[in-house]
Nucleic acid binder design. Structure first.
Lengths: 193, 193
DNA sequence: TTTTATTTGGAACAAATGTTCCAATACCAT
DNA sequence: ATGGTATTGGAACATTTGTTCCAAATAAAA
């Protein structure tokens, strides 16, 4: 009986995400979101509540899409140490090839809003915990099979890796220079040896 | 003959900087700036041109004030290696004690605007070059007197340090946790040994 | 004191903002 | 087909936005 929605929510979130990612929350108007998504105002408000609701959903969408993309693109069969290398090199490549220099949407959201918006801050904390847990599993594996030094606790190393990725994203946004980013990764990952 | 300005430009920039720092460029209205600075709209426009001009001046003011503050607070007589330790510990302390979790104004400006605003991006690049140069001088000194390992080139190490500071600022803004930040610094600085 | 140049407060403005609302539309089960 | 329900486009709204403008106020020189 009811008319079905004429759009795919995922596709809409993808388009909204791209605008927010590039321009930030406060730098993006509903007008731009209407144009970017192709939806009408009523459909946006009916589906997402308001601008803030759309932003939160876009950010969650981004976070989940990032995780999925990683699992797909990460070559299988790599040792834990090589997996970490690949991960960092991958992020260098992304920084060097994004013509818009958008950086990381989660990081941008954090610096723009986390201190004033609890729901955004919670997403940032969740993301941090998730990334640390991922690194932790890789490092524990590496320390178990002797590929990674046991000089530091796995937890400390995983925090260090997450820290480096954050820095890398900021610097890649400021000045995407190959040799700079590679210097950083080389030194940063040397603590694993 | 002319009437003198009734305000001190530095004090005004300080107040404007604090609002921009906390809320971002697009998150701050002229109305809030009028209230925060105590100036009237005409005085602001007459002195700084427009909102963007005031922002740029506030950011430059921040950058210079940071440099001055560092030179003042940095204990004299420290060896280069200890100076680096102090620097990182100092930034941990700042992150842990800022009730507003504002992070770094320069970094916030970068992630909000650098990809869309060339003048802001230039300030970010200048700041990066300056910080790298500072670290470079410290590291060269340390490598010369044997305090710092020569395993990596001084340039690569200085880039690494700048990278770590950026990460530290983001994580300190996300979740200011002492043991997390200290883990990171301990591992990050271990490459100097 | 008078003159002069500038600053200052605040009114005013047009444009942009986020949001609401409703009539028209369009789908789906009957 | 038809009826009923949800979606949709777009007009409309009240605020808020950044900026301009000018008369009044003010400080310093003459």
């Amino acid at each position: 009986m009811p008319k079905a929605k004429q759009f795919n929510e995922g596709e809409v979130l993808q388009k909204a995400r791209d605008v927010f990612w590039k321009q930030g929350y406060n730098g993006t108007s509903m007008d731009e979101l209407v144009k970017a998504t192709g939806l009408s105002r009523s459909s946006i408000y009916d589906t997402f509540g308001d601008k803030h609701g759309l932003y939160v959903k876009s950010l969650k969408y981004y976070s989940e899409a990032q995780t999925e993309k990683l699992l797909i693109e990460l070559p299988s069969g790599l040792s834990s140490r090589k997996r970490i290398n690949w991960f960092f090199q991958h992020h260098i490549d992304v920084s060097l090839t994004d013509p818009n220099r958008k950086g990381c949407f989660m990081l941008n959201s954090t610096t723009e809003l986390a201190n004033l918006d609890n729901s955004i801050n919670q997403l940032a904390v969740d993301n941090m915990d998730q990334m640390e847990a991922l690194f932790l599993s890789w490092i524990k594996e590496g320390q178990a099979n002797g590929e990674i030094s046991k000089r530091f606790k796995a937890k400390a190393l995983s925090r260090h890796l997450f820290n480096c990725i954050n820095g890398l994203k900021v610097i890649g946004q400021t000045k995407p220079d190959k040799s700079t980013l590679e210097d950083i990764v080389k030194v940063s990952l040397s603590v694993l040896d």
